[in-house]
């Protein structure tokens, strides 16, 4: 006989459903006056260090239709590659940058938009540097468990070519699904749930 491994099981996920906005972005859902502001709406202020950028795109289903009821959250390092988190032990991140954003896709066009800054590079566990990237988490009606992916920057070709995660992806033809096209300070990152261009999603 041995002792039992008495770990608990994670609570199983359930879909965010069509009304996730009520709980997470209530002002967007038209519910005003309960909270003073909408969490995750502003990631930066006028003192935030770094290069201001806009990330925009759509979440597209298997029929090619953009989702108008999705919600996205992003998480990223500051301009120096530090996270605004207690588990960041390498230094203190920019206090004027939250690192975390939350936005719905627009109810008419399905477009989402984040105003943020370009993140610095952060280390991989082996000490090498990862390319600048932003973690994404996508929920919506019909998505049973939040989808995790990463966005890399189309104008960081050298860093991308050195990135330990991009280099680990065997199906090289799919790497492009993680790379946002750049135009000025705007990066376009469409997320395809299915089909020829299905985005790489992670179990991470």
């Amino acid at each position: 006989m041995v002792q039992s491994l008495d770990f608990l099981k994670e609570s199983p996920s359930q879909t965010a459903g069509p009304y996730v906005h009520i709980g997470c972005v209530p002002e967007f859902a038209g519910i005003k006056g309960v909270y003073p502001d909408q969490l995750g709406a502003a990631m930066v202020n006028d003192k935030t260090r770094g290069e201001s950028i806009v990330i925009t795109g759509r979440v597209i289903d298997g029929s090619g239709t953009p989702l108008t009821d999705a919600m996205l959250e992003i998480w990223q390092a500051d301009a120096d590659g530090l996270f605004n988190s207690p588990a960041e032990l390498r230094g203190t991140a920019d206090p004027n940058f939250t690192g975390w954003g939350r936005q719905p896709t627009a109810g008419d066009t399905g477009v989402y938009l984040f105003e943020t800054i370009k993140p610095g590079r952060v280390p991989f566990p082996d000490g090498s540097l990862q390319a600048p990237h932003i973690s994404f988490w996508i929920v919506a009606r019909g998505i049973n468990i939040g989808l995790q992916t990463r966005m890399y920057f189309g104008d960081e070709k050298k860093a991308n070519s050195e990135d330990p995660i991009l280099n680990r992806i065997e199906l090289n033809t799919r790497v492009k699904t993680l790379i946002a096209a750049s135009k000025g300070n705007t990066y376009t990152f469409d997320i395809h749930l299915q089909g020829e261009n299905e985005t790489i999603f992670f179990d991470i």
């Binding site: 289903d61 998505i143 799919r174 299915q194 992670f202």
Partner: peptide
Amino acid sequence: LRSPRNALLSL
């Protein structure tokens, strides 16, 4: 129509 069909990439 909203479920990825490829295997998740484990990291």
